[in-house]
Amino acid sequence: MFLVAAIALFVSMILVLVRLYAGPIVYDRVLAANIFGTFTVLFIAVLGFLTGRPDFLDIALLYALINFVGTIAVLKFFRYRALGDVPQIERVKK
């Protein structure tokens, strides 16, 4: 049963990876990377059941968390072009 889930997740990951490589706009990549992260979390959880040691869910939990932070960092970067407090910078440009 978990094997089915693992295979399904694998197939999904490969498909999403293609989108990640292809783009074409950055938000496509961000979206693909984000969903890839979710699949990774699920895959690790499934793998825990598959190998009979389901007590490694901490890793999955950590992934879910880090992935979110990563996505937010990317978006902050795109919105304001910096990680710090510099919303005025983009106004300066023009």
Partner: peptide, 22 residues
């Protein structure tokens, strides 16, 4: 549940790959 979940993940992945725009 698991079969359904697997189905949905694959469907969404196909969608991410095949849909026309962002």
């Amino acid at each position: 549940c698991i079969l359904g979940g697997s189905f949905f993940t694959v469907v969404s992945a196909v969608g991410i790959l095949r849909f026309p725009d962002f």
